[in-house]
Design a protein around this nucleic acid. Structure first.
Lengths: 176, 176
DNA sequence: AATGATACCGAACAATGTGTTCGATATGAT
DNA sequence: ATCATATCGAACACATTGTTCGGTATCATT
């Protein structure tokens, strides 16, 4: 990828990110973004068709590290759900500067949506181990929402608890 | 209140509501609303300062019946949390035509936010009965989110289960 | 260092939406 | 019947959007 492209792309995403921490997504204008990034109007549109696609791109970059990252040595047993969650929590802590500002912002709900979608994939993979006394689809929806909410709380509280304990914590919360 | 005011207010709110079922909140323009409601531009702004305030008004009307309504005879014990939740679920079922379209729409997350805020008040009232092995604030946040998610699932599934069973269901889910 | 490709700039553009104002009209309450 | 006021509708200045295009700067390659 051309250096110039990388540079402008980064400038746009960074500006967008910092704007998101200050005001709601739908009040942010393309004008503000290109002013902040010091980029021409046409340049912006050559990188992103829409403001929505810029949002997708940002969410993608943020959650990529957390969910697509290679398995880490420092987290043990990865076959079980609790291990996987703990693994995810480690990555989240690594990204806390990037996540905190955004998940706790006015547009936080937006990113919670992306977050929950990723989590749904995870739980979909790991949920077979459970005996399902409730509909599978609901269980996945429920667990994703609950875990996302738990993480947001964790971040808001300053991540005092260790990832492993949060995972245990959560497991205890949802029972089974 | 003047008949004319009531009429236009209703026309605006109804149009807005039906637009919300078709497209995302932030893509809806005032122009579309006043066209649909067949109302003059200045009239709209004499009723609502902002599109956001229109949203507030709509959310207020929808959730008012559910949360502010008088205690009902057909629901028994109201002192306990499960009874209260069951009570709320009854009201939700009464409002299902109004709720379903909106909670399951593209702007559903927006209304889930309002919903969760109301629930937070409820849980805040009823939570003292619990021994708190986890921070109270988190517990409230967690329960509100979980219950809201449960309700959304309930609505999506066509409300086959009875309110009492959903309440029990939920209680079982969160343990304690 | 020279060359060709291409990413960027910046100005201009039509189109659409916003929020306000104001006099005229219609409909309400009494 | 009278007075108050809600609505209309047109006009307004202004902001935002998304596109176009010729010129300029920067890149990768040889």
């Amino acid at each position: 990828m051309d250096r110039r492209q990388k540079k402008t792309r980064k400038a746009i995403l960074d500006t967008f990110r910092s704007l998101l921490e200050k005001k709601r997504y739908d009040r942010i204008t393309v004008q503000e973004i290109i002013d902040g990034a010091d980029v021409g109007r046409s340049t912006f549109y050559s990188h992103f068709e829409t403001k929505d696609m810029l949002l997708d791109a940002l969410a993608g970059e943020i959650f990529h590290h957390i969910f697509e990252a290679d398995p880490c040595p420092w987290v043990g047993k990865d076959g079980e759900l609790e291990g996987k969650l703990s693994h995810i929590l480690w990555h989240i802590r690594d990204e806390r500067e990037n996540l905190a500002g955004i998940l706790l912002s006015d547009s936080g709900e937006l990113f919670m949506g992306y977050f929950k979608n990723h989590l749904k994939d995870v739980f979909t993979q790991y949920i077979d181990n459970f005996k399902q006394s409730v509909p599978r689809e609901f269980l996945i929806e429920y667990l994703s929402g609950s875990f996302a909410e738990t993480v947001r709380w964790w971040i808001k509280e300053g991540m005092k608890t260790s990832p492993e304990n949060v995972a245990k914590y959560f497991s205890g919360m949802v029972g089974n």
